[in-house]
Design a binder for these strands. Structure first.
Ligand SMILES: NC(=O)c1ccc[n+]([C@@H]2O[C@H](COP(=O)([O-])OP(=O)(O)OC[C@H]3O[C@@H](n4cnc5c(N)ncnc54)[C@H](O)[C@@H]3O)[C@@H](O)[C@H]2O)c1
Ligand SMILES: NC(=O)c1ccc[n+]([C@@H]2O[C@H](COP(=O)([O-])OP(=O)(O)OC[C@H]3O[C@@H](n4cnc5c(N)ncnc54)[C@H](O)[C@@H]3O)[C@@H](O)[C@H]2O)c1
Lengths: 217, 217
DNA sequence: GTAACGCTGTGATTTCCTTCACGAATCTCA
DNA sequence: TGAGATTCGTGAAGGAAATCACAGCGTTAC
């Protein structure tokens, strides 16, 4: 398994490709071409083909890719065969929206536990997910084998929450708080900063001519 | 004003720098060094200095940058002096969280109108923001001079909403729907795709050694 | 004074990612 | 069967962004 370091951008695009493939499964024919995937996902045909090199599924010339098989191959490449449980910390406005959205949507990548510091939020079930006090992060994380977490707490709390999560075995964090988390090198963090994103949009809305295709990195 | 195309990433980081500067305003001394900004925002010192070249504010050797002045300069560079009004389309779980968060937070970049297709959501005021039927996008956008919009509708509706917004004069879109929008070249779009982000995190949580510093682009 | 230090601004370099371009493969149709 | 059309896989080229590295300068110490 000597695969040479896949780039972060490639992984993101593979996720996007898979989504358009699933959409095509119901609507379209059984095969697709790279230029079709590209059009639907905002990439270029060459980029699609190059990204797909990593997953090890080959299309056939003049026939393209089998939609169902390609989607399955990407899934095999991206997903853990046993599934990965996810924890959410911070059950505020955003946290609840996230719980509502992911509830029941992806069995292989489900949010199985929520945590919050506020007494009135804990020990309830929200959108099908149990909410625990943060003191229970270590025990629940161990019990549910949680390696992936989402942080949706206020900025001030984010770093200490991250430290707790990492101590409990978490190795990947999706961070919505507007701070840069300090984490050890074996932990991957991805920041989704809405304010920064909105400021970028506002800036380029005023500074014309910028025809980037930029699907989010 | 012959400035040579600032990159998308640079704009994003400038937004991050400004935020840490505002935070430092209250807590720290009056000056900062590039390496301090870097540490707080997850960048490198060289990157900070290079990014700051675009804004045209010079620090002084051995004294670094004046926090207040630098923050003001970045603001001058990023923000519209007259402010920019923002519209939100799709007042669901996520849309409401966004309204709650941005309400009253940034007077220069305020969400001044919300739109939704569901009859029970329109003509109400949610977190201080009036919600209109989508048919009123053209009139309200013209009245409020809206050039920036946020899309938080289901994926199926996103493209037609985008078309309507663009026809109404919108030039920058922050898109939360998991689709790639087709827009004319003078419209800037930024996709914030939570599912894709979570899948990236899940992937790299399983694939060791990846010590990326990746503040979101 | 003036020497030593430490940080900024920026040309040069490196690294990473995207795009190009073309041989090989598969299909169609006569 | 074979010519023509079309797409894939991928080495090579190109471009963009991060990093290096250092000259220049303000500051401090004495
Ligand atoms: N649209 C949005 O909601 C939005 C937009 C931009 C940024 N953000 C960021 O996302 C994060 C969450 O936003 P929100 O709107 O949901 O905020 P919120 O105030 O509604 O929710 C925060 C939640 O975190 C909990 N919390 C506080 N301290 C905690 C701790 N130490 N441990 C665990 N939980 C704790 C609170 O009890 C609350 O339930 C914030 O960092 C915010 O800056 C949100
Ligand atoms: N955590 C999250 O909430 C989350 C996570 C990942 C992705 N998303 C994406 O964000 C978007 C919104 O998510 P949500 O959870 O708020 O969904 P939601 O179903 O709660 O809200 C969608 C809203 O859009 C409105 N709407 C539907 N069609 C419309 C139209 N044609 N014009 C205007 N409004 C219309 C609906 O009335 C509803 O209010 C979706 O595309 C979703 O895929 C959300």
């Amino acid at each position: 398994m000597l695969r040479k370091r896949i780039s972060v951008r490639t992984i993101g695009r593979l996720s996007a490709y898979r989504r358009v493939l699933f959409r095509s499964l119901t609507t379209g024919p059984a095969n697709v071409y790279s230029y079709q995937i590209a059009a639907l996902s905002g990439a270029t045909p060459a980029q699609v083909r190059r990204d797909l090199m990593s997953v090890g599924y080959s299309g056939s010339p003049n026939r393209g890719y089998q939609v169902a098989e390609l989607a399955a191959s990407i899934g095999e490449f991206l997903d853990d065969p046993d599934g990965q449980n996810v924890a959410l910390v911070g059950v505020g406005n955003l946290g609840r929206a996230i719980l509502a959205y992911f509830a029941g949507r992806r069995p292989r990548l489900a949010i199985v536990a929520a945590f919050d510091a506020a007494p009135e939020k804990v020990n309830r079930t929200i959108h099908g997910c149990r909410c625990y006090p943060i003191a229970q992060i270590p025990t629940i994380a161990a019990r549910e084998n949680i390696r992936v977490a989402v942080i949706a707490t206020p900025a001030e709390a984010a770093q200490s929450v991250a430290d707790t999560l990492i101590a409990a075995g978490v190795r990947g964090i999706l961070n919505f708080a507007p701070v840069s988390l300090k984490v050890p090198p074996w932990v991957y963090t991805e920041d989704l900063d809405m304010t920064m994103a909105l400021e970028k949009v506002a800036y380029f809305a005023r500074h014309e001519k910028q025809q980037e295709r930029d699907t989010q990195s």
